[in-house]
Design a protein around this nucleic acid. Structure first.
Lengths: 207, 207
DNA sequence: TTACTAATCACCCGAAACAGTGATTCATTA
DNA sequence: TAATGAATCACTGTTTCGGGTGATTAGTAA
């Protein structure tokens, strides 16, 4: 019997998954919690084999809770649970010791398979999540195109929070030119807006 | 006599500073370079007491060159030189061993004072640059306001490169609501646009 | 009970960003 | 010499962002 515990701030999700699992012969439902504190409270006097954990919850989120749980109870396997899939979150929860990650709208079959795999000590990722992770890691691994001196200069100023006209004034260029450099930055680095650009630049220590 | 060397890709700047310094009795002009390679080449067979170094140059920039110079010749004092002033650059060049930082449009008096201070082993920052650095360090030191669960969620999705309408669709909210959260993020964190927001978030490891 | 905050939604408006296209100059390189 | 790429500037749209303002609901804390 695999003892399963769930922590999620949405009762609907808890109920939904509970009903999906209730007829499974080798799965035992040992309890549920609506937040991180209740979850930690439960494990003071109880245990489980697999914990399904929502990654985004009010207060302490699943990523943080995962780290604490794995530190206290390394034997308990944790399966991340989320409504949407983000390479970043996936990466973070793995770094915090989770054994897998599935979407809340997964099929019953996939959910059960994931629980079994994780319980057996394997890592399990639902198709979509696995792809998102691969994309993310690929993006981290690829080497970056060479930026010209001007592009680096403009990039730094964008990161400082200046707008195109402000940058133009600062380095004595036409706003059109600054805009050109900015577009070249987006194109060269393969990102689609300022947010992605700055995130990449900071993460890769380009600024 | 303080032996001064300058590296800057703009001949105009080299000439300008040269002429400002040529009548100073205790300052000797030992040479100049237009790029990092030439500078390193010069110091193979020569030396100087103070190097004025442009922080943004094509190819290897001043920040990097500064690190190499200080590693090879720790006794040579380096004074960063730039057309505009950025807390980030200032911080980086100090981390790489520079002893000071002034703007290219500084007065003759300030330039000479800076050279003397740096040569004597003191750190020197022109007024503007010093203030920019203080602002920067203050911004790093302050503790961050607490973000709500929704705000963190929206922040993460902005960092992934999604627009407000896309985020709204993804987490089942009105675009207006997402926009509200976004504005609250800017206000809470005291930044003025997405670029600053994402930079802060990544640097402070909020995502 | 009242006050506060989180979370939600709504609209207006101007500024900024982004997409697309195209052009010139200059220096380097094949 | 021809081609390439960096750097510059320009115009036209459309979309997104950001400032301001305000409102409702629900839950929590004083």
């Amino acid at each position: 019997m695999i003892r399963v515990f769930i922590v999620d701030d949405h009762p609907v999700v808890i109920e939904g998954i509970h009903s999906l699992l209730q007829n499974e012969k080798d799965i035992a439902w040992v309890g549920q919690a609506k937040n991180a504190q209740s979850c930690l409270g439960f494990f003071v006097n109880n245990t489980a084999d697999v914990v399904l954990m929502d990654i985004s919850m009010p207060g302490m989120d699943g990523v943080e809770l995962c780290g604490i749980m794995k530190e206290k109870y390394p034997g308990i396997m944790i399966l991340g649970l989320s409504t949407f899939n983000q390479g970043l979150y996936i990466k973070k929860i793995i770094e915090n010791g989770a054994s897998g990650y599935i979407l809340k709208n997964s099929s019953k079959e996939e959910l059960i398979k994931a629980i079994h795999e994780v319980h057996a000590g394997y890592i399990y990722f639902s198709g979509e999540a696995g792809m998102a992770l691969q994309e993310y890691q690929k993006s981290l691994g690829r080497e970056l195109p060479v930026l010209t001196a001007r592009e680096k200069e403009v990039l730094a100023l964008i990161a400082e929070g200046y707008t195109n006209p402000q940058i133009a004034e600062k380095i004595f260029l036409s706003p059109f030119t600054v805009d050109s450099h900015r577009k070249n930055l987006l194109a060269k680095l393969g990102v689609k807006n300022t947010a992605s650009l700055i995130r990449l630049a900071v993460e890769r220590k380009m600024i």
